[in-house]
């Protein structure tokens, strides 16, 4: 962990309705102020559920979610990026981006400025008036990221956001995400099933496994970000994570 924790998940346990045993038990994770943490694990270990608990969409059976930074009327402390992009088809790109700003103590001018800023950040300024059906899969994902960044969150929660796009687009979006993260300085918890993706993006990779699930491996990736795409070292870290996962499967 690089900084003082901005978000701390402590001893989270969760049982799906109707299930007899918890999907994970006593799961704890702290993420620093501008840290990029990836969570990997097999299907059904509850990776997405952890994000949903962290985002406040569902409640854990036990445990707490603590966000170190106090609430502010002009920001939201956490924002979720969905696997399917999930834009509202009846809203334009700009209106979708504004969703989280509605209800915040912001003037119309400030809202407009924020929307323009985040659309510029994801290189989609010229798409502001488009409808979602006019966008490609990669553009939908980038708008999903812009919508989340518009609320200036302390932590960005990303649920397999690139799993539904083709390999070329995924590679491009990964590079874009690193640039956006470096510019925004937001902490990120990124759930993925792709080990190479986790190794390319993250400062730290958490491997979930076992039943009930827990953290079975934690790997720090100290490789320089500018060298990551072709780094042999990166493969070594990815292999280490894969080894931990294989052991579970």
């Amino acid at each position: 962990m690089t900084d003082k924790p901005v978000v701390s998940l402590r001893n989270l346990s969760f049982t799906y309705p109707g299930a007899t045993s918890p999907v994970f038990r006593d799961f704890s994770l702290s993420v620093g102020g501008s840290e990029f943490v990836a969570i990997v694990g097999g299907s059904g270990v509850g990776k997405s559920t952890i994000l949903r608990i962290a985002s406040g969409l569902i409640k854990a059976e036990s445990g707490t979610v603590e966000i170190a930074i106090a609430k502010e009327p002009t920001r939201r402390r956490r924002a979720l990026v969905f696997q399917d992009g999930r834009l509202m088809p009846w809203r334009t790109v700009a209106q979708n981006t504004a969703l989280g700003l509605e209800g915040l103590a912001l003037s119309e001018a400030e809202k407009t400025r924020r929307i323009a800023d985040v659309l510029a950040l994801v290189n989609l300024s010229d798409m502001a008036d488009r409808w979602p059906h006019q966008l490609s899969g990669g553009q939908v994902q980038r708008i999903g990221i812009a919508r989340a960044l518009a609320v200036k969150p302390d932590v960005l929660l990303m649920d397999e956001p690139f799993s539904a796009v083709d390999a070329m687009t995924r590679r491009h979006l990964q590079t874009e995400l690193v640039r956006i993260w470096q510019q925004s300085g937001t902490a990120i918890i990124f759930v993925t099933h792709d080990i190479d993706e986790a190794a390319f993006l993250a400062d730290r990779i958490i491997v979930m496994g076992d039943s009930p699930a827990r953290i079975v491996n934690e790997t720090t990736v100290p490789v320089d970000r500018d060298l990551r795409r072709d780094s042999q070292d990166l493969s070594r870290y990815a292999d280490s994570v894969a080894g931990a996962l294989d052991f579970q499967i």
Binding site: L57, R76, M88, W90, L99, G100, E102, G103, R147, V151
Partner: peptide, 28 residues
């Protein structure tokens, strides 16, 4: 229901906000 989840994730989870921002346009 995924749109209700989206609205809730971005602070629009109360009945009025859900109705105006999801139910009404989605059902239109």
């Amino acid at each position: 229901p995924r749109y209700y989840e989206l609205a809730k994730a971005f602070g629009q989870g109360n009945y009025l906000a859900r109705s105006m921002k999801v139910t009404l346009p989605a059902a239109m």
